[in-house]
Nucleic acid binder design. Structure first.
Length: 477
RNA sequence: GUGGCCAUUGUAUAAUGGUUAUUACUUCGGUUUGUGGUACCGACAAUACGGGUUCAAUUCCCGUUGGCCACCCCA
């Protein structure tokens, strides 16, 4: 067999040899072309087709996988402790559902939706968010006949065809809660509390930015006022914002353009245009938040990008010095959505957290601790056991013993792909196991098993029948 | 969608218009037979893709794709 040659090298040789053939004598030409042909064949054989993830999509790999598992665990514990029930809905939905609820003119719908026709010619889309799906489900499944309110939580992947960036992907994961069928301000406060405590349990301190955008009527009145104000200051606005005066004037409020900010500071604030009821509602929500000691900031420029929100809107920001700018999640009340989608008038509110961003923050924190050498404090020292086997008979016996242990709920590490004891000991050491069980020919014969303490090197012989209890004791320490 | 920066083995890196592309880690195998932490030896593995300039491109130029950052938006 000839030595493996990379395609590039072949190409090079190919080119080189072609040139030499032209220059050099004719008789050499044939020989060279034979060689070239051989190279071409090999080259074809070796050309590998590779596949990779689509843009903005990624794999979650072992190291991060553990963080994700922990996040899911916390998310589940917190939401169920508040009385929310787990639900799932299809990832594929009718495109109209989202166009109707989120609204034309929003970026999510106009630019970012994965919409296509399926084989029946139906316009379908990959869900860009969950609220509309749950509203649809509430109506479709007659949930108004369940005890109200219906409190649901979910997690799953959403899709938006956006430009990828740190903490932003085209397929991303959200966790969220929705309370449908309750109009009281407690609901708003409770939802904020769930999100806040979830983040807190994950070790992320946050500040809640909160605002009220009133009822649809309040907003209409306000927008008239706002637009007339903005028109008067038109020349001071950025190009982008000028365009938005007619299309979506509320969005100008959270522009980051310096010129715009100056104009916005003087602008009429939506709070002043709320009806007395809306105002009362909002202050009550704030009172509840004070009561349960959740830190919040009133943010009069907070308006959300989705059309269905009414009254309370909020967003969560990381309180760490570093990553202030990333919104970890947000939500609000959407009292007219259910009706808009064809249901009875039903009040509702909810929130969603971006899990990708949460994992990103946790990962960064972990890396920082690791660099500072402080991770030792976080690691809980627990006994780890490795099971090594030696020889064919022991190999089979080992499988059986592992099965016994597994049935008892005891997990020991093992690796059947290594045959030498030395190699297995190396692995045991690498994963940081505290004890190694060794099963060889000798042990198989007298129904025993060798237990080695990896720190002290002391070994003792244990009866195979007693191994479960023995392992359990070790793992308890 | 707009703009800026970037692309070398699984990871992190070095170098170069010219023979075999550096180094470390990881992975795999070994340093006699059943014992890890070290040490030694060896193997696998890369110039993202496509075009152009050139005698010669991994290097220079263009395009594509992808990544990061900012804007936009959002979670």
């Amino acid at each position: 067999m000839p030595k493996k040659i990379s395609p590039k090298a072949v190409k090079k040789t190919l080119k080189d040899s072609k040139k030499t053939t032209i220059k050099k004598v004719n008789s050499k030409k044939k020989v060279v072309s034979k060689v070239v042909n051989k190279f071409i064949i090999e080259n074809k054989k070796e050309k590998k087709i590779t596949y990779n993830t689509l843009r903005g999509m990624r794999d979650i790999l072992p190291r991060n996988g553990e963080i994700w598992q922990r996040v899911y665990e916390v998310v589940k514990n917190v939401s169920t402790s508040y009385g929310f029930s787990y639900v799932e809905t299809p990832i594929l939905e009718q495109a109209g559902l989202f166009i109707r609820s989120i609204g034309r003119g929003t970026d999510v719908i106009d630019k970012e939706m994965y919409v296509f026709e399926d084989k029946d010619g139906e316009k379908v889309c990959l869900r860009p968010e969950m609220t509309a799906s749950l509203a649809r489900s509430y109506i479709e499944n007659g949930m108004q006949n369940m005890p109200q309110p219906v409190k649901m939580w979910y997690h799953g992947q959403m899709f938006r065809h956006d430009r990828p960036q740190a903490g932003r992907f085209r397929q991303f994961y959200q966790f969220g809660c929705e309370t449908i069928g309750d109009s009281g301000p407690v609901t708003d406060a409770e939802l904020i509390s769930v999100a806040y405590n979830t983040l807190k349990d994950l070790g992320i301190e946050t500040v809640v930015h909160i605002n009220s955008i009133g009822t649809l009527q309040d907003r209409e009145n306000y927008i008239v006022e706002l637009v007339s104000y903005l028109r008067s200051k038109r020349s001071y606005l950025s190009e982008e914002s000028k365009k938005r005066i007619n299309k979506n004037p509320l969005r100008i409020l959270d522009s980051k353009d310096e010129q715009d900010i100056a104009v916005i500071e003087e602008a009429p604030q939506i709070i002043d245009w709320l009806s007395p009821e809306s105002k009362k509602f909002f202050t009550t929500v704030l009172e509840y938040l004070d009561e349960i000691e959740i830190p919040y900031v009133l943010n009069p420029t907070l308006v959300r990008g989705l059309d269905y929100y009414t009254n309370t809107v909020f967003e969560f920001f990381c309180d760490d010095e570093e990553m202030v700018n990333i919104a970890l999640g947000g939500g609000g009340r959407y009292d007219s959505l259910i009706e808009q989608l064809g249901g009875q008038p039903t009040p509702a509110a909810g929130f969603a957290l971006g899990l990708d961003r949460i994992v990103l923050i946790i990962k960064n924190k972990q890396d920082m601790l690791e660099r500072a050498g402080l991770l030792g404090l976080e690691k809980i020292k627990k006994n780890k056991i490795f099971f090594a086997q030696l020889g064919e008979k022991a190999n089979k016996k080992a499988l059986y013993i592992l099965e016994l242990l597994r049935r008892e709920g005891l997990f020991v590490y093992h690796n059947f792909s290594k045959s030498s004891l030395k190699a297995q000991m190396e692995i045991a050491d690498k994963i940081g196991s505290t004890h190694t069980l060794i099963l060889g020919q000798k042990e198989v014969q007298d129904d025993s098993i060798l237990v080695r303490n990896m720190d002290s090197g002391i070994q003792e012989v244990v009866d195979q029948k007693k191994i479960c209890n023995f392992v359990r004791k070790l793992l308890q320490n």
